[in-house]
């Protein structure tokens, strides 16, 4: 199995935590309880690897021990010929109605930090969850 440090999900997970920590600092919150993230399959990020990377990337940060909630976004395309938006497959972005290939992606490549839940007061974790 690949080490978590061999995948780009770890770098993106670190970005996620950096961004969330910045929001927490702006609100004067010592801890982050939950991070809600939206990921589309065309973003190039594997949800499972993101989950795997999170405990490692969040160690010794305000997000340590927080819950990571990942919502996956469907792949959607807009066909100018049909003037319709429809759901498509990751490796078939042609219009499912007319078959035209000149569609525009309207969803499915998102990689977004949607919201964070902040704790107003610090709670001491008696023992770190990682060795």
């Amino acid at each position: 199995m690949r080490e978590p440090r061999d995948v780009h999900e770890l770098s993106l997970c670190r970005s996620l935590i950096r961004q969330a920590a910045r929001v927490a600092a702006e609100h004067g919150a010592p801890r982050i309880r939950r991070l809600c993230v939206r990921i589309g399959p065309l973003s190039g990020v594997e949800v499972a690897l993101m989950r795997e990377a999170f405990p490692l990337a969040s160690r010794d940060t305000p997000a340590e021990g927080a819950r990571l909630e990942i919502a996956t976004a469907p792949v959607r395309v807009h066909c100018p010929r049909c003037a319709q938006e429809t759901e498509a497959r990751v490796n078939d972005l042609t219009c499912p109605r007319c078959g035209d290939w000149q569609t525009r992606l309207t969803g499915g490549d998102e990689l977004l930090l949607v919201s964070v839940d902040l704790a107003a007061s610090a709670i001491e974790s008696p023992t770190p969850s990682n060795p």
Binding site: L12, S15, Q19, L111, L113, V116, D117
Partner: peptide, 21 residues
């Protein structure tokens, strides 16, 4: 401890790309 301080938690909307940096 977590349950007792649940009322302290509040949600902040961010809507920012993870690749912003």
């Amino acid at each position: 401890q977590h349950a007792s301080s649940e009322h302290d938690v509040h949600t902040v909307a961010v809507l920012e790309g993870l690749k912003a940096h």
